[in-house]
């Protein structure tokens, strides 16, 4: 597997592609990797992030005529609550929250995964997937209130026989693209501001009285990078 550094999803694209990051969350052995593999089939190139035990799969596709380069992030079996590296959540544009319909405990843990996600990404779209329906298809007649309660789209899927896997991932990509074009997280807004900001060399070092530590203080005229973010 190729070792790569973490890509920067906020960098402007040079190829006219939109670049999005979609992460998968959920308990150990709910089938997150199997779902990604089923969606990508042979067309994936797994890459290991050099610094952390995380795997990402790049996928290039076209949605409504727009070229998009998607990185699906997988936990590489490192999932423990409060133990996922922050870089896993960093700059993510959408999340697929997975549970295993044969194991109740994986459903009961969804609120904890959602809570952890929201600490890092308060606003990104989240889709809920009920996996392994091939084991007992009668689960598809039953109600699971978690998704509705949190206003998420819900999918009955099987990585084994393929049911609704493509639909789930295409919807996730669309949600990620939509979010990227109209982000509501405050950090995304700041990042976008930074991207769009026209550096004025005459002004960037103008206010030397600014506390260098107040990088996150919105409204302060300049940071120590010399970039105005107000």
């Amino acid at each position: 597997m190729a070792q790569v550094a973490q890509p920067d999803y906020d960098k402007p694209d040079d190829s006219g592609e939109i670049r999005v990051k979609v992460i998968c969350l959920g308990d150990s052995a709910v089938g997150k990797s199997k779902l990604v593999e089923r969606f990508l089939m042979d067309g994936y190139k797994p890459q290991q992030l050099s610094t952390y035990a995380l795997t990402l799969f790049n996928h290039k596709t076209e949605i409504n005529g727009q070229k998009v380069s998607v990185d699906f992030w997988d936990t590489a079996g490192q999932e423990r609550f409060n133990n996922m590296h922050p870089s896993y959540y960093h700059q993510a544009h959408a999340c697929i929250l997975v549970f295993d319909t044969t194991r109740k405990v994986t459903y009961k843990n969804l609120p904890q995964w959602l809570k952890e996600l929201r600490e890092y990404r308060p606003e990104i779209p989240c889709l809920c997937a009920a996996n392994k329906i091939d084991v007992d298809t009668s689960v598809t007649k039953k109600t699971f209130n978690f998704a509705k309660k949190h206003n998420m789209p819900f999918y009955f899927v099987s990585a084994s026989d393929g049911t609704n896997v493509v639909r789930l991932f295409r919807d996730a990509i669309k949600a990620a693209m939509k979010y990227k074009s109209n982000p509501t997280d405050i950090m995304d807004e700041i990042m976008q501001e930074l991207e769009n900001f026209d550096l004025d060399p005459g002004n960037s070092n103008g206010d030397s009285s600014t506390d260098k530590k107040s990088k996150s203080a919105i409204g302060s005229p300049a940071t120590d990078d010399g970039v105005v973010i107000s």
Binding site: T140, K141, G162, V165, R167
Partner: peptide, 12 residues
């Protein structure tokens, strides 16, 4: 085998 298998289950 079909790559895209879409099944509409009963809504909630």
């Amino acid at each position: 085998f079909q790559y895209n298998v879409e099944i509409d289950f009963e809504t909630e």
